[in-house]
């Protein structure tokens, strides 16, 4: 340090401390190098003998664990997929079964229904025939009665008019008129 440039106080302090840059004081380089080498050797042995193999082992173990876990997860996933497939299969089977049962039931019911309908049809037609007969009888009965009534009425009418009613002729006339 140049003495002329600094003020008195600074100069005094400067003189008290070490000259200039401590880095360029080569007298203590030996000391630094000695301790540095010791430090480096200690760190090297600690790292290469203890720390690095340990960390490498931990990392490898973690890698292994992760790989195993992934494999296990993969397996579980496959199982899940399998189970789902089985479920779907069962579902489809059940559906087919249900459809079959429903169809069977339907067919059975249809058969029963057909039989019942046939029976009912037959009964209905029998009843209808019977009714028709009854109606025809009634109608025939009614015609006869009308004829009788007409005969009687005609006879009475003829008699009332003072005529001598020929029963046969009246009946014939009534029958003709009724036909016509």
């Amino acid at each position: 340090m140049a003495t002329t440039t600094t003020d008195a106080a600074g100069h005094a302090a400067e003189a008290a401390s070490a000259p200039g840059m401590p880095q360029l004081d080569f007298s203590n380089w030996g000391n630094q190098i000695f301790w540095l080498l010791i430090t480096l050797v200690v760190i090297y042995f600690v790292l290469s003998r203890i720390a690095l193999p340990r960390i490498a082992a931990v990392l490898a173990e973690r890698q292994g664990t992760i790989t195993n876990d992934i494999a296990a997860a993969e397996e579980l996933k496959a199982k899940a997929v399998e189970a789902e497939e089985a479920y779907n299969q069962a579902l489809a089977d059940a559906r087919v079964e249900a459809q079959k049962i429903a169809a069977e039931a339907k067919a059975e019911i249809q058969a029963d229904l057909d039989v019942a309908i046939q029976k009912a049809d037959a009964e209905i037609s029998a009843k209808a025939a019977e009714s028709e007969k009854a109606i025809a009888e009634i109608r025939a009965g009614a015609l006869d009665s009308i004829k009788d009534v007409a005969d009687a009425t005609a006879n009475e009418v003829v008699a009332a008019l003072g005529g001598k009613a020929d029963a046969k002729a009246v009946t014939k006339a009534v029958a003709d008129r009724m036909k016509g």
Binding site: N31, Q32, I43, I50, A51, R54
Partner: peptide
């Protein structure tokens, strides 16, 4: 300062060693 004298260089290098051991050995 002889080549073997413990100085502040020694102290702080030793602290660096302690820190390395604390992190890499004790920590793991």
């Amino acid at each position: 300062i002889n080549w073997y004298t413990p100085t502040n260089v020694t102290l702080w290098m030793a602290l660096a060693v302690v820190a390395v051991i604390a992190l890499m050995v004790v920590g793991t």
